[in-house]
Design a protein around this nucleic acid. Structure first.
Lengths: 157, 157
DNA sequence: AGAAATTTGTTGCAAATGCAACAAATCAGG
DNA sequence: CCTGATTTGTTGCATTTGCAACAAATTTCT
């Protein structure tokens, strides 16, 4: 059973993730790009079948509470990045559907975002270290398996 | 340069840190304990000389914006966890000083927090993996070196 | 010494967030 | 069917957060 080393690992992990996230957010904002949360939503929709997801599903994957999904969706719809569509089978349900503009913005954000990842993260690690990190992260957090999901592509935030 | 593997590493890193953080926060809240941000502040003060730090320094280390330091300090003071003390050398400055109650709460929180770290993080990793992770985190984020003593108290050399 | 620039903490305001209550729709089980 | 329980999305409310303006104190530079 581990004590100090495990705790030190957590501390370093926690600090690094917090700081790097902050650095990325600041850099994105500095160029007038939306926060990474928006990227996350757009990218999640892009991977989903028909570029659409029910609000509940979207919230689960993106880690937003329900009310926040409603409000964020409202805002994104106002910017023409997504559209709402009522679910035919379940009249409670609402789909968020990615628009062309949303797709374009996602790609534009990715240009900058991927460069930031490279600059502040990947470039500091050897390929071997990257592999090690991937393995370690897998052990520490396993995303629940979703039935749909297309295979990996750019930055599954 | 490398591309896909570095980006995958970032994605996994980002998701794991976000989710684990959420898990920990929820668990703490479930037991009526304050959020980890409070732990962070208390622990930062505890490590500092005389258990005290100027608001600016505190904000830098804990990653709070200035106004948030003021307000969080206000709240913690109301709960008797810290005290404010004016800086003698710089009449703009305010120190946040840890109280006995603050120290006690920090320790109580740590009992639970460390158990959560063990449960959700350390126990999933071998000692070797923990070492690897520490090394990788160091490469990816190096905390600025603080000239830790009364550094930011001007004129107090 | 004195004017300009910078730092430090506070405050008002607007936006974001979490929580709980809510109505409508669906589901479960007799 | 029918009643009660659950799910889904929305909304009101209180809290939190970030941003910008601000005054006081200090530093810088001439």
């Amino acid at each position: 059973m581990n004590t100090s080393k495990g705790l030190e690992a957590w501390a370093k992990f926690f600090v690094a993730s917090t700081r790097l996230n902050q650095v990325m957010e600041d850099a994105m904002k500095l160029e007038g790009l939306p926060p990474l949360e928006v990227y996350d939503v757009l990218w999640t929709l892009e991977r989903a079948p028909d570029h659409s997801l029910r609000f509940t599903d979207l919230g689960e994957r993106v880690l937003l509470s329900r009310c926040n999904v409603t409000r964020l969706a409202e805002k994104l719809e106002g910017q023409g990045l997504i559209e709402r569509e009522r679910c035919p089978n379940d009249r409670r349900g609402v789909y968020a559907v990615l628009t062309k503009e949303g797709l374009k913005l996602r790609k534009d954000m990715w240009k900058r975002y991927s460069a930031l990842i490279e600059e502040h993260f990947s470039s500091h690690l050897s390929e071997k270290e990257q592999t090690q990190l991937i393995d370690i992260m897998k052990k520490v957090w396993q995303e629940p398996i979703r039935a749909d999901e297309k295979s990996s592509c750019p930055g599954a935030v």
